[in-house]
């Protein structure tokens, strides 16, 4: 009959997530009202809020990623992957890439992840399928990855990136997307469409039972 504190805390999670999403980039003072009426964020200069938001997203991303590394249960891995994907989508919102964020949610979280879970359920003998990995192998992989990570981080932190921090958006990013896909990127766009068709047929053919 007790309603534990944990439950209350869990109940607060949607609120917290909602709040963090809602208070994403706070609009700057010189916001062009006509643009903001169209729902276009022109710049993210939110200071403290943006920072908090970023750390929350990064924390969830990395925590879920780490949990995937440690987890032995394949369905749990898929759920953690969902956490990673959702947090990365939030990060795209922070980066003013709304469309990519939404596509990430709809294609990755709504489509690919479900496909993975389907794959898990169709191929696992028991629901608790686990695969043992040798400890030595784990340690070796950890060392290699740590070295690799160290090297990459060294480069990332110390490199001089050419930056233009003043974000300038002309019109909606959606308009840019549409124009881009049908002009500059028409060839890759069509190539990818054909590829998708081929993949669809190929996947159906391969999964079919002879």
């Amino acid at each position: 009959m007790t309603l534990r504190l944990k439950k209350i805390l869990l109940l607060m999670t949607p609120l917290a997530i909602a709040l963090s999403f809602a208070t994403a980039p706070v609009q700057a003072a010189d916001t062009d009202l006509s643009l903001s009426d169209q729902g276009i964020q022109t710049s993210a200069d939110g200071g403290l809020l943006e920072a908090l938001m970023f750390y929350a997203c990064a924390g969830v991303t990395l925590a879920c990623g780490f949990a995937i590394c440690l987890s032995k249960n394949i369905v749990r891995m898929a759920v953690y992957l969902f956490g990673t994907l959702a947090a990365v989508a939030l990060m795209y919102f922070l980066l003013l890439a709304n469309f990519i964020g939404v596509i990430q949610l709809i294609v990755y979280a709504g489509g690919t992840l479900i496909l993975l879970i389907f794959g898990v359920m169709l191929t696992s003998k028991s629901p608790w399928a686990k695969f043992e990995v040798k400890r030595s192998e784990l340690i070796a992989a950890g060392i290699v990855c740590a070295l690799f990570a160290g090297m990459l981080l060294f480069v990332v932190v110390n490199a001089e990136w050419p930056l233009e921090t003043d974000a300038v958006v002309v019109g909606s990013s959606m308009t840019q997307f549409g124009t881009g896909l049908l002009t500059d990127y028409l060839v890759p766009f069509e190539a990818i469409s054909v590829l998708l068709l081929v993949v669809m047929i190929g996947a159906a053919y391969m999964a079919r039972q002879e």
């Binding site: 999403f21 809602a22 903001s36 009426d37 169209q38 729902g39 276009i40 369905v75 759920v79 969902f82 959702a86 709304n98 469309f99 964020g101 939404v102 596509i103 949610l105 709809i106 979280a109 709504g110 489509g111 992840l113 479900i114 879970i117 359920m121 629901p127 909606s172 990013s173 959606m174």
Partner: peptide, 27 residues
């Protein structure tokens, strides 16, 4: 609440993402 320029796809995505919870619950 938030007038987002991709609101429509966002809502569709949210309705679609719900399925993850259902699958996980069932499993």
């Amino acid at each position: 609440f938030r007038n987002v320029d991709v609101a429509l796809i966002f809502i569709i995505a949210m309705v679609g993402v719900e399925v993850v919870g259902v699958i996980v619950a069932g499993w």
